[in-house]
Amino acid sequence: MALTIKQQFSSPGGILKFLIKHNTIFIFIVLVIFSALISDVFFTSVNLSNLLKQVSGIGIISIGMLIVILTGGIDLSVGSMVALLAVTFAILVNTVILPLAIILTIIIGFSLGSVAGYLVAFQKMAPFIATLALMTIARGLGFIYSKGSPITFKTPGGEFMSNFANNSTLGIPNIAIVFFLIVIGAMVMLRYNVFGRLVIAIGSNEEASRLSGIKVNKYKFLVYAISGALAATAAIIVASRTNLGSPNMGMAWELDAIAAVVIGGASLNGGKGTAINTLMGVLILGLIGNILNLLNVPSYPQQVVKGGIIIFAVLLQKFESK
């Protein structure tokens, strides 16, 4: 029902309903306030820009993950793809001119994603299996091409990228700007473009989509390819930040990306989820890590807290659907 915010507040229990409906943003705000109260370092520009730098890589692959999940699929290969593509980018930076290195890396990412897309859309392979296989293949290839050790940037192009990735514009880290642009792009595509409409339609009822004359296979193929291209973008950013490409990068990132998408209220059955909420999911995960670091909580308890927050967020969404 097209109730305005005011109407929602004025109906009985309205505030609670409003909070449950917008639980992702609500959790985010609570976490920000909590962080600011508990640590005086939190609201410093150094800390905030570190936080944004840390989440940008995972954030970018989370957007790809969201688009895949909207069709009812899943992409487990993105973490390993980041490793393979970071190594690829490092090799390319050291051999060809920078713009070509960037374009080639993204094309390779798109192509690798296309393999998953082909298997899922045209060979009717279960997305979990197809991308699980690609996950180990990509990780393996990363180690093969790098011979097991990190490849450092050695050219002026590499230096340029490293500067870009570690600097800020108007106080916002450049790589976070890239991330935000991708979020905005995804928002626009999902909301105002036929592509987004059809991706959501396919995820909410694949058979009805097929019988409506929608090219279901084409779109299922495309979402994995796009996820691959976004993994490439994340790889370029992550490699540039550290000035090297390593086959150990992106370890278990696919799980963080899934967590971010789910915290953002998307349904793993497909058809439900938005880019802005995924952004919130990414920031929530990042915030938890950040504040626990500021409080000097060691990393193992951090994992426990992270898991707890995921459960809490999804439980809140249960209320929403009731």
Partner: peptide, 9 residues
């Protein structure tokens, strides 16, 4: 329900 409409949309 199965083939005609998109219930959640």
């Amino acid at each position: 329900k199965e083939e005609g409409v998109f219930l959640p949309l």
